[in-house]
Amino acid sequence: MPDMTKSQSGGTAVDTAADAGPLQAAADAVLAPGDVSQGKPRSLWGDAWYELRHRPLFWVSAVLLVLLLAIAAFPGLFTGANPRDGDLTNHFLTKPELTHFFRADWFGYDGQGRSIYARVIYGTRASIMVGVGVTAVVTLVGGLLGMVAGYFGGWIDSIISRIVDIFFGLPFLLGSMVVLNAFTERKVYVVIAALAFLGWTTIARVMRSSVITAKQADYVTAARALGAGTGRILFRHVLPNALAPTIVVATIALGAYISAEATLSFLGLGLADPTISWGIDISDAKDAIRDNPHVMLFPAGMLSLTVFAFITLGDAVRDALDPKLR
């Protein structure tokens, strides 16, 4: 391997092309330098990550999300107050007392005399769990069905697509209200199931269309020509190239699921009282909104902030994954 050793020393295209004739050597030298001069090769995902790192909006949403996830996982670290303790002497109290600073009543108290700050902190977990849970189920179920429909086509596609159409026809909020109404005990997983039941169709459609695009690519034909089986084609060629739109839609939808949970809880059909949730607090605050708007302000503000963080992340990821926008 004489020219192998040669090219190791140089590391440019000229070395290898040297024995393939002068024309080719010259052409490769012209074609190559932009690629070769930069050191480590990057994959498309690597490129996307590089792109992400240079977006301020990504960092804003990422910091927010890390903070929110930390709050959801360890709410006790962020407040010493018990969100369920009500002291009616604090009824709608707004003036923060310095001595209470580390019990954190800077957001004031609600009608039951409970610390709004503590309730906002403890309510994060329910919202994040619903958002992440619904997104996980929806991505798995919708993604799988969409992939099967898109790849195999024919009658399988017809059946799955008609089912998707039927579910798509059901209004998301009204449908989940009807489903949740059938349950007396509405725990987090019940809400997740109800929202996922109606939410998977979007992902299925997105996945189906991107799989159809990906499976027609020449590299899939090339793999088939080599004799590759269905599994290899699906998981090595089609899926990696069809995943990006699904990731984007799922990230943006996550925020929508969180607000859907809050909406349902506000209407009294989502999570019920022993669970602490922003939606429940917003619902409780609605009667006092004229005299004590702060009771509404903080849970609603946290909700908006969380949804904003997820949607911004989704946008940033879409921009990074879509090479046409670069």
Partner: peptide, 18 residues
């Protein structure tokens, strides 16, 4: 006629002829 060291590169780092 390509450099064997290109083995870890991705297709988008090459020109059409390559």
């Amino acid at each position: 006629g390509l450099n064997p060291e290109y083995i870890n590169r991705y297709p988008h780092q090459f020109s059409g002829g390559q």
